[in-house]
């Protein structure tokens, strides 16, 4: 049913991603799909990497590791932005087409009051794309 699953990841918060990574791996095995891990990162030096090229290297390594763990082919893609916090949703929506994904699996937080003025990234991506979106909420939902 699905051939390519896109999983947005932020290497600075990998621990918070564990559930969505697991879900993505399980679905990939179930549908015999491949997984593409995508990141949006700043062009300025950051916590994970001091250059965009270093980030790409680290994400490629991360994808490989995930691929081995779940036994499915994995790839990675880094999008560089000069304002990643503001542009994240737009870039992810655009990434769906560029990656050729037909399913997005991404982590999100619980709905909260602040969402009225600052909607969650997962929610915004889901409203702006045609492909299926699986929003993975934290455990104690």
């Amino acid at each position: 049913m699905y051939n390519r699953i896109m999983v947005p990841v932020d290497l600075a918060h990998v621990d918070a991603l564990e559930r969505s990574l697991q879900v993505a791996g399980d679905l990939a095995r179930h549908y015999q799909a491949e997984v593409c891990y995508v990141s949006v990162t700043a062009n300025t030096p950051g916590t994970v990497a001091r250059t965009p090229a270093e980030y790409e290297q680290k994400l490629a390594g991360f994808a490989q590791e995930q691929g081995q763990r779940h036994g499915r082919p994995a790839s990675s893609r880094v999008f560089i932005s000069h304002d990643p916090v503001a542009d994240l949703d737009d870039i992810l929506v655009q990434a769906v087409g560029e990656v050729g994904a037909d399913l997005i699996v991404m982590g999100t937080h619980l709905p909260r009051r602040l969402d009225a003025i600052m909607p969650s990234n997962g929610g915004k991506v889901a409203t702006h794309t045609n492909v299926s979106v699986f929003l993975v909420r934290p455990e104690h939902a």
Partner: peptide, 9 residues
């Protein structure tokens, strides 16, 4: 600390 991707608030 030089991060451009700190939370919006």
């Amino acid at each position: 600390g030089g991060k451009v991707d700190a939370p919006k608030p």
